[in-house]
């Protein structure tokens, strides 16, 4: 099976935040939980770049390695998912995550911050595919319907790419070749450098 990844072509991102909005709508993400966000670097200066960032579904995911109850698992597609039935809301995954992906229902003291929530690559969770129970805990399961994550699917400038890591990397490299510039595959070195195949 393909190893799926996200890639944000920052030279195309116009910070429209439609990916964020689409994600919010697709999964009915409550206010305050930000599965995806757009970060603008050097905002207002010449050469500013915006990057749409969510869980990168890392190879050898740091969150999974540090989870005290081992609630994470990686699907055959390379998507990093977790079980909210096991999660104890300790927040270790947030310390380990290079991309600030984990979100918690409550803010304040460590003790009772609730079950962690994060981007599922629109792949749901351990519950049976496309069930009501799965939706209530993890949101829509588009992958089970043969669709890609909604954020990348509707990106108006096709800046945010999702799909087979090898293919989207090829698309990006072609773009860079043609136009002659590229600010980099944001996060890839940090997320995937642990695997020899990238």
């Amino acid at each position: 099976m393909a190893r799926v990844k996200f890639l944000c072509d920052a030279d195309r991102c116009i910070e429209c935040n439609a990916c964020v909005t689409a994600c919010k709508n697709e999964h009915e993400v409550p206010w305050g939980i930000n599965r995806r966000r757009v970060v603008t670097i050097n905002d207002g200066k010449p050469g500013e770049r915006s990057v749409s960032m969510a869980c990168m579904h890392c190879t050898d995911a740091p969150c999974a390695a540090v989870c005290p109850v081992s609630c994470f698992y990686t699907t055959a597609d390379g998507v990093v998912l977790h079980s909210k039935d096991l999660c104890i809301g300790c927040g270790y995954c947030f310390y380990a995550c290079p991309f600030g992906a984990p979100q918690y229902p409550k803010v304040g003291n460590f003790g009772s911050r609730g079950k962690m929530d994060k981007c599922t690559y629109c792949a749901g969770g351990p519950e049976a595919d496309s069930t009501r129970a799965e939706y209530a805990k993890y949101g829509a399961n588009r992958l089970a319907e043969g669709k890609l994550p909604i954020c990348a699917e509707m990106c108006s400038t096709k800046s945010l790419l999702a799909g087979d890591g090898a293919i989207i990397a090829e698309i990006y490299k072609e773009r860079v070749m043609k136009r002659g510039y590229g600010s980099g595959m944001w996060g890839w070195k940090t997320a995937y450098s642990d695997s020899p195949t990238g």
């Binding site: 305050g32 939980i33 930000n34 409550k106 803010v107 304040g108 003291n109 003790g111 009772s112």
Partner: peptide, 17 residues
């Protein structure tokens, strides 16, 4: 302590508004 700590807790929807 547990009841005191619970009063400090805010939901994300309140904290991030």
């Amino acid at each position: 302590v547990s009841s005191v700590l619970d009063t400090i807790q805010q939901t994300s929807s309140v904290a991030y508004t």
